Simulated scan of single mutants.
Amino acid sequence: MSRDVLKYRHASAGALILAIAMVFASACDTPSEQASPTTAPTSALPAPLFPNWPAVANDFRFHWSAAPGIDLNSGPAVPLRAYLESTRLAAFAGGDPSVVYPGFMRSTPENQGPVANAGELFQLEYIRPQTRAEYEANGWTYVERQVYGYQPTHVLSLIPQGDGYRATVCVGAYSVYRTADDDPQKFFSTAADEQTGQLTYGDRDEIQVWRVELTENDPRVANAPAPPTAQQLGPMPAPVDDVFGRWFITGAGTALWGPSGQGEHIDTPEVRQQCEDAMPDDAAARTAMATGFHDGPPPHGEPVPGWPAETQ
């Protein structure tokens, strides 16, 4: 299998990946449900191995866990999983809008863009991630490379709020790998700088803290399919159908939350410590995986909990 992966070339790969994560880069702001054929990039990657799963992630899997009392396989955790997986996959694919899961566009509002005026909400800046064209406008170019390894993703809390829920999610970036531009046999973590193999922002490179809010009662949702009735777990890395139902993402971010001038930090010391404690790998193992150059990526294993193999 080809070891090519998609990666942005920048002075600091670690800083770039963090920047992508900070804006939830992974989709596009095309309002239609289907990606425009003029915006989808031409790919030299091998064919995808699974439905709704991009070739860039053939050798990568999501591993989810949750705090006691949170059911990952039904209710609001299902659209939460689908939203976060979609955003990450599109980031890996460099802003390719075609790799998000079915229903993603219907279930998200258009991006507000960078906060510029008092009262604008930080959580709406890039609720749909930036496009490839936007990355290129910022001076980034890309090289097709696959991603490897696994991403530990822990739902720290999923709390009823108003007519919906607020989720705090810990994302382990340390075990997501790419290959170097100058040597396809040299692997490094997306948390590290490609030139030095070192972390730029320390533990914030290794683990990202995300907040997502969602509701089933947003009037912007139209023509939504019935939600899945079966438990959403199985052998597939991606859902074979639309699992969003009437759920709508009303806010998402990793830095500041709330209106301009009154924003609160999502990534507090207390939450960060809880996220570190929730990772399956201890601090020493995370740092060893996140730094330096390696002969191969971590084994990706099976998707956890995965998605059903058939429409349900």
Rank of each mutant, 00 (worst) to 15 (best):
Met1His: 06
Met1Leu: 07
Met1Asp: 15
Leu6Glu: 08
Lys7Pro: 04
His10Pro: 05
Ala11Lys: 07
Ser12Pro: 04
Ala13Pro: 02
Ile17Glu: 15
Ile20Asn: 13
Ala25Arg: 11
Cys28Gln: 04
Thr30Phe: 04
Thr30Met: 09
Glu33Val: 10
Gln34Met: 14
Ser36Asn: 14
Pro37Thr: 08
Ser43Arg: 11
Ala44Met: 05
Ala47Trp: 15
Phe50Asp: 00
Phe50Leu: 04
Asn52Trp: 09
Asn52Ser: 01
Pro54Phe: 13
Ala55Met: 09
Asn58Cys: 10
Asn58Gln: 02
Phe60Pro: 01
Trp64Met: 04
Ala67Val: 05
Pro68Ile: 14
Gly69Met: 13
Ile70Trp: 05
Leu72Thr: 06
Gly75Lys: 05
Val78Asp: 03
Tyr83Leu: 09
Glu85Val: 03
Thr87Ile: 12
Leu89Trp: 06
Leu89Thr: 00
Ala90Phe: 05
Ala93Ser: 13
Gly94Leu: 02
Pro97Glu: 00
Ser98Ala: 12
Ser98Glu: 02
Val99Ser: 03
Pro102Trp: 08
Met105Val: 12
Pro109Trp: 11
Glu110Thr: 06
Asn111Lys: 14
Gly113Thr: 03
Val115Asp: 15
Val115Glu: 12
Ala118Tyr: 03
Gly119His: 11
Leu121Gln: 15
Glu125His: 01
Tyr126Gly: 11
Tyr126Asp: 15
Ile127His: 10
Pro129Glu: 15
Gln130Arg: 10
Asn138Arg: 06
Gly139Glu: 13
Gly139Phe: 12
Thr141Ala: 09
Val147Lys: 03
Val147Ile: 12
Tyr148Glu: 01
Tyr148His: 05
Gly149Tyr: 02
Gln151Gly: 02
Tyr165Ile: 04
Tyr165Pro: 04
Arg166Leu: 14
Ala167His: 08
Val169Ile: 13
Val171Asp: 01
Ala173Asn: 10
Ser175Tyr: 04
Ala180Met: 05
Asp182Ala: 13
Asp182Trp: 07
Gln185Cys: 02
Phe187Lys: 02
Ser189Tyr: 06
Thr190Glu: 14
Asp193Ile: 03
Tyr201Lys: 09
Gly202Phe: 07
Ile207Gly: 12
Ile207Tyr: 14
Trp210Gly: 08
Arg211Lys: 14
Val212Phe: 11
Asn217Thr: 09
Asp218Ala: 10
Pro219Asn: 11
Arg220Asn: 12
Asn223Arg: 11
Ala230Val: 09
Gln232Val: 01
Met236Phe: 14
Pro239Trp: 00
Val240Leu: 05
Val243Asp: 02
Gly245His: 08
Arg246Ile: 02
Gly253Ile: 00
Ala255Lys: 08
Ala255Gly: 07
Trp257Gly: 03
Pro259Gly: 10
Ser260Thr: 09
Gly261Ile: 07
Gly263Trp: 01
His265Trp: 02
His265Asn: 13
Ile266Met: 06
Asp267Gln: 04
Arg272Thr: 03
Gln274Tyr: 05
Cys275Gly: 13
Met279Asn: 15
Met279Gln: 14
Thr287Tyr: 07
Ala288Gly: 11
Pro297Val: 15
Val304Glu: 11
Val304Ile: 08
Gly306Thr: 00
Trp307Gln: 00
Ala309Lys: 07
